[in-house]
Amino acid sequence: MSDGRRADARRNYAHILAVAEEEVATHGSGASLEQIARTANVGSATVRRHFPTRRALLEAVSAKRIAALCARAVELTGEDDSRKALLTWLDEVVSYSVSARGLAAALAYDGPTHENSCSAAIEEAGDPLLRRAARDGVVAPETTVADLITLIVGIVLATEHYPDPAARADRLFRLAVAGLSPRDDHRSP
């Protein structure tokens, strides 16, 4: 009997997750757990059993996108131009975060006492790209992936209500990469 219950629980989880993905896509990180329960035709206690916190819900909803970003970082690690490889990956993190409502909130830093599997995975994946760029002298050596993700989260959250959030986030990210002072070398981000 327990195998049937486990299979049923897995199906129930998959159904709730599918509903949660739609709700987060529509309403962002503020998606209602109660609405998810109603739409999934389960009690709110069932939703909370699977997703005890909003963070757990956002991380589960974002898992596939996080995995894709991590795989992309690995692909770019072997590129010849370490600056271009890092910036290509960061551009993709910005684009994903803008298009996947709730992803920026899932990546947001909650403080040292809260485990964040999304940020941890992204930091681990991006670290080889950043270390290589720092070794090549194209990124300040004290820069961390956590710094870059925090910058991206801030940009995405600040621009999510603009008429064209993707364009605004891209503009601000490029400004951050280029810096505020004009330069003679005008390398494009």
Rank of each mutant, 00 (worst) to 15 (best):
L87H: 14
G30A: 05
S119E: 00
R83F: 15
A45Q: 11
A133H: 01
E123W: 03
V74E: 13
D127E: 14
A37Y: 00
L86P: 03
A133R: 02
L130P: 11
S95D: 15
I66M: 06
L129R: 08
G30S: 02
P128G: 00
N41R: 15
K84V: 14
A105L: 04
F51H: 01
C70V: 14
A108I: 05
A71F: 09
D81K: 04
A60C: 05
D91G: 00
G102A: 06
A73H: 06
A60E: 09
C118K: 00
H114S: 13
T39M: 13
T46E: 02
S62T: 09
L76A: 06
A134P: 08
R65W: 13
R38G: 06
A106Y: 05
L76M: 03
S99Y: 07
S29T: 03
L90V: 08
R38V: 12
A121R: 08
A37H: 01
A134S: 07
R55S: 10
L103K: 04
E123P: 04
A133S: 05
A67W: 06
V93Y: 09
A31M: 01
P128L: 07
R101K: 14
Y96H: 15
Q35G: 13
P52N: 05
A104I: 07
S119K: 11
R131M: 12
S82V: 07
L130V: 10
A67T: 09
N41T: 13
A106L: 01
K64L: 14
A45M: 05
G78V: 11
T39K: 11
T53D: 07
K84R: 15
A56G: 10
S62F: 07
L86T: 07
L86D: 01
T39A: 13
A133C: 04
R38D: 12
T88P: 00
C118S: 12
S119C: 07
D81T: 04
G43F: 06
R38C: 05
P128Q: 04
Q35D: 14
S29V: 07
D127P: 02
C118V: 09
G111Y: 09
A106W: 02
N41Q: 14
S97F: 05
S44C: 12
G111S: 01
A125Q: 04
A120E: 09
N116R: 06
N41L: 13
P52R: 02
Q35M: 13
V61E: 02
T46F: 10
A60Q: 06
L33I: 12
G30Y: 02
L69G: 02
G102H: 09
R83D: 08
S99H: 15
D127F: 01
T46A: 10
G28A: 03
L90S: 05
D127N: 13
R131P: 10
Q35S: 14
S99R: 15
S44D: 14
G126M: 06
G126L: 00
V47G: 03
G43D: 10
A73L: 07
G30H: 01
G30I: 00
T46Y: 11
E92S: 05
S32V: 02
A67E: 13
G28V: 06
G111Q: 00
N41E: 15
A63V: 01
L33E: 09
A125H: 08
K64S: 15
G28H: 02
P112K: 13
N41G: 15
L90G: 03
S82Y: 13
N116E: 02
T53F: 11
D91C: 02
T39Q: 11
V98W: 06
P112Q: 07
E124M: 12
S82R: 05
L57N: 01
G78W: 03
S99N: 15
T113G: 08
A125F: 09
